[in-house]
Write a protein that binds this DNA or RNA. Sequence first.
RNA 1: GGAGAGGUGGCCGAGCGGCUGAAGGCACAGGUUUGCUAAACCUGCGUAGGGGCAACUCUACCGAGGGUUCGAAUCCCUCCCUCUCCGCCA
Length: 421
Amino acid sequence: MLDLKFIRENLEVVKQAIVNKREKVDLDKLVALDLQRRDLLQEVEKLKQERNRVSQEIGKLKKAGEVADQQIAEMGTVANRVKDLDIEVRRVEAEIRDIQVWIPNIPHESTPIGTTEDDNKGIRTWGEPTEMDFKPKPHWEIGENLGIIDLARGAKVSGSGFVTYTGLGARLERALINWMLDLHTEKHGYREISPPFIVNRESMFATGQLPKLEDDMYLAQTDDLFLIPTAEVPVTNLHRDDVLQAGDLPIKYTAYTPCFRREAGAHGKDTRGLIRVHQFDKVEMVKFVKPETSYDELETLLSEAEEVLQMLELPYRVLQLCTGDLSFAAAKCYDIEVWAPGLDKWLEVSSCSNYESFQARRGNIRFRNEAGKMDFVHTLNGSGLALPRTVIAILETYQTDEGTVVVPEVLRKYLGRDLLK
RNA sequence: GGAGAGGUGGCCGAGCGGCUGAAGGCACAGGUUUGCUAAACCUGCGUAGGGGCAACUCUACCGAGGGUUCGAAUCCCUCCCUCUCCGCCA
């Protein structure tokens, strides 16, 4: 969320951000309401001041044993007027908020202006798309043949877009999760978190999923709780309403969670196999940092996510998202796309974003800076990594012409095998 | 789900309907003393929103929302959360 005063003083910047992010918000109405609010405040606060002053007089008079009937009658009238104005102020403030919560974060100045993913900017490529001396199979064929992925039974049990991993497929998931968590905790210095997978409305609002993305989320209606779309939500909300100490920053958490996404309206595109599913596993990294360090922290975060692919020896490329592809809450975001030879495609396996103070304002996550003043932290998060597409890349890259899959070196210890057959 | 206790500033903790934005302590910042560390003493120190060029000033905030009252941290109602006991249960 953006600060009201900031919006007031940087109206054109905010308007441009809304256009660039392809959102629609009636800022002029917001400005008018803000003006109205301040007029009302001045009026009601003046009345409150008088009420406070006279009420004190009444107290003194009564203590002195004198009558104060006249003052009491006068303040009765003032009290009624205050009550009416307070209601009006609350109404106007609610209207302001209803607009304010739909204003997206402002893209960082380095963000390319653009409308679709085609306008994203290539940053670097690591490795070369793998050349095979046979025609590589898509992962769903490899997986079904090896008996490690069962799409049909996932669909029977839950519906399309739900996968069941069986045997070594299930173990591969577990191996990847354990290996990634070990990497981030032991080498990168993150603290491991195992958070709730179901969260309340306040949490979904703080990280920016609500109100915009409500239709993409699974909702347990009876209790008004949401299945998390990413560990970012519960882990960032760990510090909602907290005041952190400057000395404690940066705080770095990593968490494995399943992620649940309805993907309303996304049907029809890239839905085959594991490419786009309603439930998937992910290891996430989340950071709470001082504002002046957040862009350096973003680069570190990105390199830690890249390291996962480097250790798996999977070719990938890094893109910086353009304004039109940047999410509602993000100021700057890099995507990492891994090469999938069977699909002959790049697949997004990680998104690393800096939200600056956008989420911190919504969630009231503050810290006391060196000068002793309260300030909002900056929050960041990045996937490290999303599992299904990592599995796709592993199966398709390490497949042999015999239909087996060589296990990447770093996973052998975790999987207890060096070949899937 | 039932019964009881409780939710006060960054933290702990006091608080008769008016003189309480809130005692006291801790933490933090500055200063004095000190060979260093430590300690002692002094001073300062909530958040947010208005108004003012500014010094400053006003308003709100004691879990949330209502109510009573000229006036509510304090009284009443509803809800949320935490703890203890009971029930149910992996």
